[in-house]
């Protein structure tokens, strides 16, 4: 029998993913397509927000949406009906997307001619924050009913996000939701994050969100 060899590896298991994500980000930069990793809990209103966003922006930007869920394709049908090129990714039980799955999804959907692609990550506030998908920007949605204490409970998600959207602001008064307290809790974790309260239902804050997207797309293409 061969002698046992001991090999010093000293490598994080996420290192391979990080390299793949960096390479994908470069390719998307060259293609002029901004990929946004959209993360939140289940039921935070991601699909509703995307539908309302498409209604406002699909005349000026070409937008694709990759919906990642454990199962079903209801979300892909919904966003496609609002004018997006859409594809449904099934993670087969996996609780987050990684760079390889993202790349496969982009290849199947085709990014040619797209200015902006939303990757609607699996609904959960934990591991989607840990795995780099290759996106150019990370946006998280916290819906008002979830409560202003979430940055304390899921710090990493708030630390890695460039933009924190507070959705369902129209119902905030019914849930004792304190926006100032939320802003304080987010700033403690991430002083650089932009915080945007909105309601896809009433349209409050939607202009600011669309402006943020226009600017992000423009800057990505420079």
């Amino acid at each position: 029998m061969d002698a046992i060899k001991v090999i010093q590896v000293k490598e994080d298991v996420r290192a391979n993913n990080d390299r793949a994500a960096d390479a994908l980000r470069e390719r998307l930069r060259d293609a002029g397509t901004l990929l946004i990793n959209l993360m939140s809990s289940p039921g935070s209103g991601k699909t509703t927000l995307l539908s309302a966003t498409l209604d406002r922006l699909s005349y000026e930007l070409s937008i694709g949406v990759m919906e990642a869920d454990v199962d079903s394709d209801v979300d892909a049908h919904t966003v496609a009906s609002h004018g997006a090129r859409a594809i449904q990714l099934h993670t087969g039980g996996m609780c987050h997307l990684d760079a390889a799955m993202t790349e496969q999804g982009l290849r199947n959907m085709g990014i040619e001619g797209l200015d902006l692609v939303f990757l609607e990550n699996v609904g959960n506030l934990i591991c989607p924050a840990e795995f780099d998908t290759g996106a150019g920007a990370k946006v998280m949605i916290l819906s008002a009913p979830e409560g202003h204490d979430k940055p304390l409970k899921y710090p990493l998600m708030f630390e890695v996000s460039d933009l924190v959207i507070v959705s369902k602001m129209d119902v905030a008064p019914y849930f004792d939701f304190d926006l100032e307290e939320l802003q304080k809790n987010v700033r403690m974790r991430n002083p650089n994050a932009t915080i945007l309260p909105l309601s896809a239902k009433t349209g409050e804050g939607m202009d600011a969100w669309c402006d943020w997207l226009r600017k992000a797309v423009k800057e990505w293409k420079v």
């Binding site: 060899k5 001991v6 090999i7 010093q8 590896v9 298991v13 710090p155």
Partner: peptide, 28 residues
Amino acid sequence: GKTCPHCQSPNTVLLHGLEIEIDTIEGC
């Protein structure tokens, strides 16, 4: 947590604790 117990500052950074690192392997 995030608040320094020595000076109460919230300006703190995690040094260790997020590792998921393959240190060594043995095989033939």
